[in-house]
Simulated scan of single mutants.
Amino acid sequence: MTTAYKKLKKAELSETEEEENKELSSRRIFVEHLICRVKILRVTSDRFRLARHPYS
């Protein structure tokens, strides 16, 4: 597991650390969006459990 660099109390992050954090976050967002799509598709593939007569 890879974690982002954190800023120390009285120090700033270097440019390379900031760039690596941005790259890491973009990869993380991509994976999170894929997980979201899988969950949405799983929900639509489940059986409809409510009474069918009020719904078309």
Rank of each mutant, 00 (worst) to 15 (best):
K39V: 13
E20I: 00
E18P: 00
R49C: 08
T3F: 08
S25I: 03
V43R: 13
N21H: 06
D46L: 14
L50H: 11
E15G: 02
A51M: 07
E17H: 04
S26C: 04
I40D: 09
V31E: 12
I40Q: 09
L8N: 09
L50C: 11
S25F: 08
Y5F: 15
E19P: 00
S25G: 01
V31A: 14
Y5M: 02
R42F: 04
E12G: 04
C36H: 10
E12S: 14
R42G: 06
L41T: 05
E18V: 09
S45M: 14
R52E: 13
V38K: 03
E20P: 00
M1Q: 04
I29M: 08
L13I: 08
H33Q: 15
K10S: 06
R28M: 10
L34V: 07
A4L: 01
T3M: 05
L8F: 03
P54G: 09
P54M: 11
E18I: 10
E17F: 01
K39E: 14
T44P: 00
M1R: 06
H53L: 12
H33V: 13
T16G: 02
C36F: 12
Y5L: 01
T2H: 02
R49S: 11
V43T: 10
I40E: 12
L13C: 06
S26K: 13
Y55M: 13
R47V: 09
F30T: 15
K39T: 09
V38A: 01
E15A: 14
A51S: 14
Y5K: 05
S25T: 05
F48C: 10
S14I: 00
T2N: 06
K10V: 01
L24A: 07
E23C: 03
A11T: 15
T16H: 05
E15S: 09
V43E: 10
E19T: 08
E23K: 11
E20S: 03
V31G: 03
T16R: 07
N21I: 03
E15P: 00
E19M: 05
L50Y: 13
R47I: 06
K6R: 12
R27E: 13
K22D: 07
V38M: 01
S14Y: 01
S14D: 14
K10M: 03
Y5T: 01
Y5E: 06
K22G: 01
L34F: 04
K9F: 06
F48P: 00
T2F: 01
H53M: 06
E18K: 13
C36I: 04
R52Y: 09
T2P: 01
L13S: 02
K22Y: 05
D46A: 12
I35C: 08
H33Y: 07
T2I: 05
M1D: 07
R28H: 06
R42V: 07
Y55W: 15
S26H: 05
I29N: 10
R47E: 15
K7L: 02
H53F: 10
E18Y: 00
R47L: 12
R37D: 05
K7S: 08
S26E: 15
S25N: 10
D46P: 00
N21L: 02
M1F: 03
S56Q: 13
